[in-house]
């Protein structure tokens, strides 16, 4: 199915959870924050929450900044 990740269209397997996605993209889960369709998703829900077609996902992390 197709979803939007950080503004770009991406193809992911059906029934993918957020954790599945992070694993596939080799992103350590402790360095990112997830916003799904404009809402922040708490870390404890990343395993159970399955993504749906056309979901818009923002994967955000902390970097150096002034």
């Amino acid at each position: 199915m197709q979803v939007k990740i950080n503004g770009a269209v991406a193809e992911i397997p059906d029934n993918h959870s957020i954790d599945d996605l992070l694993l596939a993209r080799k992103l350590p889960r402790d360095i990112v924050i997830i916003e799904l369709n404009g809402e922040i998703i708490k870390r404890e829900n990343w395993e159970s929450l399955k993504l749906n077609p056309s979901d818009s996902l923002e994967i955000i992390r902390i970097i150096g900044g002034g």
């Binding site: 950080n6 503004g7 993209r25 992103l27 990112v32 924050i33 923002e58 994967i59 955000i60 992390r61 902390i62 970097i63 150096g64 900044g65 002034g66």
Partner: peptide
């Protein structure tokens, strides 16, 4: 100390 947030760059 300040930090910033950015979208992950794959």
């Amino acid at each position: 100390v300040t930090v910033a947030l950015r979208r992950v760059d794959f």
